[in-house]
Amino acid sequence: MSQSIYGINLAKHSFSIHGEDHQGKLLIHKTISRSKVLSTLANIPPEIIRMEACGASHE
């Protein structure tokens, strides 16, 4: 079983999520609000998630 990879761009108010399977097929690509991050990630299978944060995301 090959794993899918999800990328999440962390920002102050909105988050972009992009996921692909092991063959490069798009699984998800959407922008969500901060309040929906946990529920969105909880509803996808356990996989590799890579995070990127913009310079002001920590403020």
Rank of each mutant, 00 (worst) to 15 (best):
M1W: 03
S2K: 11
Q3M: 11
Q3V: 09
S4L: 05
S4T: 14
S4F: 04
S4R: 05
I5H: 00
I5C: 06
I5P: 04
Y6E: 06
Y6V: 06
Y6A: 03
G7N: 04
G7W: 05
G7H: 09
I8M: 10
I8F: 03
N9Y: 12
N9S: 08
N9P: 08
N9Q: 09
L10N: 07
L10T: 10
L10I: 15
A11C: 10
A11Q: 07
K12T: 15
K12L: 15
K12Q: 11
K12Y: 07
K12M: 12
H13E: 15
H13N: 14
F15Y: 10
F15Q: 00
S16C: 11
S16V: 11
S16E: 02
I17K: 01
I17W: 01
H18C: 15
G19A: 15
G19L: 04
G19D: 11
G19Q: 07
G19R: 01
E20A: 13
E20V: 15
D21P: 14
H22D: 13
H22F: 12
Q23Y: 09
G24H: 06
G24I: 10
K25N: 14
K25D: 14
K25C: 04
L26K: 12
L27Y: 11
L27W: 02
L27P: 00
I28H: 06
I28T: 08
I28G: 00
H29F: 13
H29R: 13
K30Y: 02
K30R: 08
T31D: 05
T31M: 00
T31H: 01
I32A: 00
I32N: 01
S33R: 08
S33C: 00
S33Y: 03
S33F: 04
S33V: 00
R34K: 06
R34L: 01
R34A: 10
R34D: 05
R34I: 05
S35D: 08
S35E: 14
S35M: 06
S35H: 11
S35Y: 07
V37P: 05
V37E: 02
V37W: 01
L38M: 13
L38E: 13
L38V: 12
S39R: 04
A42V: 02
A42K: 15
N43A: 10
N43S: 08
N43I: 03
N43G: 08
I44M: 09
P45R: 06
P45I: 01
P45T: 07
E47F: 02
E47H: 07
E47T: 09
I48G: 09
I49L: 14
I49W: 08
I49V: 15
I49E: 04
I49M: 07
R50L: 11
M51P: 01
M51E: 06
M51K: 02
M51H: 09
M51D: 08
M51N: 01
E52F: 09
E52V: 04
E52K: 02
A53M: 00
A53C: 11
C54T: 15
G55I: 13
A56K: 10
S57Y: 11
S57P: 03
S57V: 08
S57C: 13
H58V: 06
H58F: 13
H58W: 12
H58T: 11
H58R: 05
H58E: 08
E59L: 13
E59W: 04
